[in-house]
Design a protein around this nucleic acid. Sequence first.
DNA 1: CGTCCTGTAACCAGAATGGTTACAATCAAA
DNA 2: TTTGATTGTAACCATTCTGGTTACAGGACG
Lengths: 156, 156
Amino acid sequence: MNTNSRFAVAIHILAMLAYRHPEALTSAYMAMSVTTNPVVLRRLLGDLRRAGLVESRAGSGGGWRLRREPEQITLLDCYKAVKEDPLFGLPLQKPNPGCTVGKSITQALCGLFQEAERALEARLAQTDLAQVLAQITGPPCETQTLAGRERDLSTL
Amino acid sequence: MNTNSRFAVAIHILAMLAYRHPEALTSAYMAMSVTTNPVVLRRLLGDLRRAGLVESRAGSGGGWRLRREPEQITLLDCYKAVKEDPLFGLPLQKPNPGCTVGKSITQALCGLFQEAERALEARLAQTDLAQVLAQITGPPCETQTLAGRERDLSTL
DNA sequence: CGTCCTGTAACCAGAATGGTTACAATCAAA
DNA sequence: TTTGATTGTAACCATTCTGGTTACAGGACG
C-alpha cells in the first residue's frame, strides 16, 4: 500500500541519535549506516527539526542531536513529523454526486480513515526511542569499521 | 504517506454493492459512481473476489454482487483483500551491517510496524459494511440521473 | 446467432520517490 | 582571518508507481 520509506528511515536515524545521545552526528555519518545520500537525510532531519525532535549545528564539529531524552520521543512524534499525506489516499477524481453512494461516500471515508488512523497513532504513541534502542544491542558504531567500508567518506 | 487510493475505491464499490444487495451491478455502472474506468474496477473487484467478498457473472444481466451479508464484511476484510504492500515501507537499500544500529534496525522496524498495523487492523475489524452504509442516506441511485450525466453509458 | 458482460494483457502519461550535484551560509579551530 | 567541515536548499534526473485506455478472448443469456 506504500512504497515510501520516510518513516522507516526517520526511525533509523533517530535510533542512531538516541544511541549516541547527547553526541551530535553528521548527516554524512548517518548516511553510511542508512546506505543513502546525506542530502536525503538532511531533508528528513529538517522535518524532524521542525517538529522539535532534533537540533542541528552547521560547521566543523557540527551535526544533529536529539532535543529531548530518548524516553521523551515516541514513534508517534516521529510519524507526525515526517508524514506528508494521509495514511489512506482518496481518488483524485471526485465521486459522482448524482449517485447516492457517490454523493456521501467521501465524507464517510474520511471519518472511517480518521478512526483507523487514530487507532494506529495510539499504538505508535506507546513506543518511545528508548524502547526501540533496547532492541539494538552491542557497542556503539565503530568509526573505523565504517571508514573501511566506505572509502569516499574515509575521514569520518 | 500514501498516494494509492485502492482501499478507498474498494470501500466505495463495496458500499454500492451493499446498498443494492443482493442485486448485481456491472463494473461500467459502478465506474460512473466512482468516476473511473470500468477496467480499473474490474482489477480491484478481482482482488475482492479472490478474497471471497464478491462474486461475478459474465454475460448479459451479469455483474458483481456480495457473497456475504453487509454485516458479515468488515473493513479489515476489504483492507486485506486489496492491500499489496506493507503499510510502512522499508528502504530498498539495506542498512549498513557494519553499524550496530544498521545491523539490527531492520528487524526492529519490522516488529514495530507489525504492532502498529495490528492496532490499525483491529480498528478496521470493528466496522462492517452495514455501518458504512448507515452513513449514506437517501434512495438508491437513479439510473436515469446517471444516464443523463454520462451519455456514453446511457443504456444503464 | 447477437449482445452484454467479465477477465486480462498491453501500453501509456503523469506523479511520486529518492539519488545526485551544486552552492551559499554557518561555525570552529588553526 | 583563513581554512575546512557542515548544514540548508534548490534543481535536476532516473526509476518506479498509479491508474487510465484500448484491445480482445471468453462466458452467459435471450
